[in-house]
Amino acid sequence: MAIETTSIKRETLEKLFSNWLSEGKRILAPKKLGDHVDFALVGSLAEVSLDQVQTVQSPKIAVFPRVEELLAFQSTDGNVQLRERDLAVLPETVIFGLRPCDAAAFASLKAIFDWDTPDKLFSARLEKITVVGLSCSRADEYCFCTSVGGGPGAAAGSDILLTDMGREDFLLEIISEKGRQAVRSVSAGLQPDAAMDKESRLARVTPAFTVEKISSVLAALFDDASFWEKQSLRCLGCGACAYVCPTCACFDIQDEGGASGKRLRCWDSCGFGLFTLHTSGHNPRPLQSQRWRQRLMHKFSYMPERQSVLGCVGCGRCSRACPVDMNMVEHMRAVAEAKP
């Protein structure tokens, strides 16, 4: 559908919040939690923090929780009963106030979970989210959305995109049918777009590299062990980058609770040596440099080739979270300048 542009007053937005809640929807939004801002369930617009550059964690928890039950089992006298997840009880969720980079990340996650054989638990959660993005009026030195096909006011992935125009006014772009349904209850309060200048409100994010160049260099750079060693010398292998990443989807499967317990899916990371360790002790990626290479190759080479989507949206969280200050933009520049 064509994007429909209108505007909405903050008070109407507040009304929309209570309408969503009374319709039984959960609202997941950035919220000030102590000294940082993160996604949490909120009960009103007043609880939402709108002025941070970025939350610490990404909103992927809405479709891919840190730990989730895949199935439960009950063992009695040698008989095993399986209990599947009841997908009908998964909550309808409005993710409100996420940045355009985070909204774009759902396409990368979908590419991983739904390529080939669909993952029904992920699909059911994705079906039940409504994405209400909020354009960025500020960026920091870690942001690089414009280098990976996004932008501070990009609509991709959002059902509705808001832009804070100041003075309690928001530009409201309805991007999908789901978005149209989400604002139906306040449609009388939506005003025609009075020639609002969205561009003037957006942060400036200067492109730092071109993806086409990165992808082509990466393929030829695989065997350059010294390049990867140099690039990853600082890496602790702590996995922080993967945990805050909105597109990282690697997971582990573990049982918990004994013979009458649960099978769980938990976040994992290619940065860990145990991730690929064979029972025999052999490890296809024994070095941290090989694991760092895997992280970049997966996002910028393998995913574009196999799933036709980048595994990075330029949110910059990996760089902000890295305890040893590895900066994705600098690493991408190094790749672009490498001579394989």
């Binding site: 991983i112 979970f113 390529w115 080939d116 054989t117 993952d119 695989f222 989807a249 690697c250 997971f251 582990d252 499967i253 994992d268 290619c270 991730f275 690929t276 360790l277 064979h278 029972t279 296809p284 895997q294 190759m297 997966h298 080479s301 393998y302 080739e305 196999r306």
Partner: peptide, 16 residues
């Protein structure tokens, strides 16, 4: 090493 068996968990890949 594998966990999911269906191309999602991320650990068995050799290149792409």
């Amino acid at each position: 090493r594998m966990k999911c068996g269906v191309g999602k968990c991320g650990r068995c890949n050799v290149g792409k």
